[in-house]
């Protein structure tokens, strides 16, 4: 279970408060107007940006001061999820060993992870030779190998077309089901939320609200969300 206890985030004049818990294995969308702090919230959970006060717990363990790479989570950014100078296999292999001293068994695991995300025979290629969808799959393969219990998606599929994006979300859902991972996904598209996430965190007016059932939230949005959705 992920718990944010009395978290306050301050950045110049920007302020955001968060106090909620996310059940293990939940799939949660994070939506709200742009600039409300969706990405910042994920940054704080991932450990890139310190909260001013409050604590973050995972399964009861305080991870507030844990460096990003040691937290029990994987994060997919909007872009730059792959190192362009490393091959696909190396990029995925980083999920097993950051120093890339991979055994033959490790390489087999890399190939299996790539196959699982629908990629075959591209281990030796560089990211620049791949399509946007393929690059997303490589990043997902790495997350699959890292097998961390929490997965944060900071709009990694925003640049993909609608059909491809839906496909990737389905893949994330499958992987999360297999590994039992908890998923937090930032999106500005209510379609994504209703397709992927039974629950939704609304970030608006300086508050990250506790998760609520997505359907109910979208059917009967509070005024700030209604304004954002254009209803």
């Amino acid at each position: 279970m992920l718990e944010l206890l009395d978290i306050t985030i301050t950045q110049d004049t920007f302020r955001l408060a968060a106090d909620f818990r996310v059940e293990k294995g939940a799939r949660v969308a994070v939506i709200g107007p742009s600039g409300a702090g969706k990405s910042t919230l994920l940054s704080v959970i991932a450990g890139f940006f310190p909260a001013e006060s409050g604590r973050i717990l995972w399964d009861g363990n305080d991870i507030t001061a844990t460096p990003p790479g040691k937290r029990p989570l994987s994060i997919l950014f909007q872009d730059q999820n792959l190192f362009p100078h490393l091959t696909v296999a190396q990029n995925v292999g980083l999920g097993l060993r950051p120093d890339l001293r991979l055994s033959p068994a490790d390489y087999e695991a890399v190939t299996r992870a790539l196959t699982r995300t629908g990629l075959q025979g591209i281990e030796g290629r560089k990211p620049a030779t791949l399509s946007g969808g393929q690059q997303s799959r490589v990043a997902l393969a790495r997350a699959l190998l890292r097998a961390r219990p929490l997965m944060l998606l900071d709009e990694p599929f925003a640049a993909l077309g609608p059909a491809l994006k839906a496909e990737m979300l389905d893949l994330v859902a499958e992987i999360a089901d297999e590994t039992g991972a908890t998923v937090l996904m930032v999106s500005h598209d209510p379609e994504d939320a209703s397709r992927f996430a039974p629950e939704t965190i609304l970030v608006a007016e300086g508050v990250a609200h506790p998760p609520r059932p997505t359907a109910a939230l979208l059917d009967n949005p509070p005024p700030v969300l209604a304004a954002y959705l254009g209803q």
Partner: peptide, 25 residues
């Protein structure tokens, strides 16, 4: 700016970071 967070999130530090990220880039 481009890869700092990615390297951090993968715990790519020390000599591995020098060898795999800094020198090649």
């Amino acid at each position: 700016a481009d890869y700092g967070h990615l390297a951090q999130s993968l715990d790519l530090t020390g000599l591995a970071r020098l060898k795999l990220l800094i020198v090649p880039r």
